[in-house]
C-alpha cells in the first residue's frame, strides 16, 4: 500500500498523545486498530498529516464490570477480546450476539470497539449496540474528561462530536434496570461483509415488565438509526406478540434504506421488521421458558 506521506508518532502516555493532537491541529488522526483507517489511507480517501498511534498507551485495553453492573470497554480493547469474554457472554447479550458478526476473525484481532464507534460508519455494528444500550463514550482532551451519550456521539456518516484534540478512552454501558436481555441480527452476504441490514435490540426486564428498551438499526440510513419509537413502544408492559409486532413495524418505519447492490430499499426495510420481531420473539420465548 502506498498512502500519501504522513508523520507517524507513537506516544507512550495519554498526555503526550493529546499534546501531539493539539500540535497536529485538524491534521492529526488517531490510529487504533487501523482496520478502518489503514484501508482509507490505502485508497487515499484520507490524507492526514500525522498519525498518532495510541497502541502504546497504557491502561486502555480493559474490559471490566463495576460492582453496580456498569461495563467499561477501553479504547484498546479488540473485537476479539469482546467476542471471547465470559463477562460479556454472561452479562451483555446484545454485545455477545454482535461480537462474532463484526468483520471477520482476522480483522477482529486488531480492530477496537471504541475505534469502531469513533469511525461512525453507518454500517458499523458497535455504534448500534451502544445506542440500543444507552451507552456513552468517555473522551479525554486538554480540558479533562467528558462523557457523551452514544446517541449524541455520532453526528453523521463517519462523523462524531470529538474535538480534534480529544481521545475516546472508553465506552461505558450502564447497568441494566433489571435483567439485561437482547440480541443482534445481521444480514450479510459473506463473513466480513458490512451489514445489508442489521438490528440491535436491548431490553431490560423486571419480571415480565419491560423497564427499558433500545433498538438501533444498521445499514439502513445515512447513519446509525436510533429507533426510539419502536423501543418506547415496548416500555412499561410485558413483551407480547402484539407489542412485538408494533415495535417491529415502528422499527421498519424508522429505517431510511436506499437501494444498492446489497439489496433494494423495500427488502432492507422488510429485514429490519423481520429481525426486530425475531429478536424480541426470542427474548419473549426464553422469558416464558424461564417463568
Amino acid at each position: 500500500m502506498y498512502p500519501p506521506r504522513f508523520r507517524y508518532e507513537a506516544p507512550r502516555s495519554l498526555r503526550e498523545a493529546i499534546t501531539l493532537l493539539q500540535e497536529g491541529g485538524g491534521e492529526a488522526k488517531i490510529l487504533a486498530g487501523g482496520q478502518s483507517l489503514i484501508p482509507m489511507l490505502k485508497l487515499r480517501f484520507a490524507s492526514p498529516g500525522m498519525l498518532v498511534d495510541i497502541n502504546n498507551l497504557p491502561g486502555l485495553d480493559h474490559l471490566t464490570r463495576d460492582g453496580d453492573g456498569t461495563i467499561r470497554i477501553g479504547a484498546l480493547c479488540r473485537h476479539e477480546h469482546i467476542e471471547r469474554s465470559e463477562l460479556i457472554t454472561e452479562h451483555q447479550p446484545t454485545i455477545a450476539a454482535a461480537a462474532p458478526l463484526v468483520a471477520d476473525p482476522i480483522v477482529r484481532t486488531r480492530g477496537t470497539f471504541v475505534g469502531s464507534v469513533c469511525h461512525a460508519d453507518p454500517q458499523g455494528d458497535w455504534a448500534a449496540c451502544m445506542i440500543a444500550l444507552d451507552g456513552a463514550i468517555v473522551a479525554e482532551g486538554p480540558g479533562g474528561r467528558r462523557s457523551i451519550a452514544a446517541r449524541d456521539f455520532v453526528t453523521g456518516p463517519f462523523q462524531n462530536v470529538l474535538a480534534s484534540d480529544e481521545i475516546a478512552v472508553e465506552a461505558v454501558i450502564p447497568p441494566p434496570q433489571g435483567e439485561a436481555r437482547g440480541g443482534y441480527l445481521k444480514l450479510e452476504r459473506r463473513i466480513g461483509d458490512f451489514a445489508t441490514a442489521a438490528v440491535a435490540v436491548a431490553v431490560d426486564l423486571r419480571g415480565d415488565q419491560v423497564t427499558r428498551a433500545g433498538i438501533a438499526l444498521v445499514g439502513v440510513g445515512g447513519t446509525t438509526i436510533d429507533a426510539r419509537d419502536a423501543a418506547d413502544a415496548l416500555v412499561g408492559s410485558p413483551l407480547s406478540s402484539d407489542a412485538i409486532e408494533r415495535a417491529a413495524e415502528l422499527a421498519a418505519e424508522a429505517a431510511q434504506p436506499r437501494s444498492d447492490h446489497r439489496g433494494s430499499a423495500s427488502y432492507k426495510r422488510h429485514i429490519v421488521r423481520t429481525f426486530t420481531s425475531r429478536i424480541l420473539t426470542q427474548i419473549d420465548r426464553s422469558t416464558q421458558k424461564a417463568a
Partner: peptide, 15 residues
C-alpha cells in the same frame, strides 16, 4: 460496482 473485495465477494471457508 465491485471494484474491491468489500463489494466483489470471494467466499471464505466460513460460508
Amino acid at each position: 460496482v465491485g471494484s474491491n473485495y468489500m463489494d466483489y465477494l470471494l467466499p471464505t471457508a466460513w460460508e
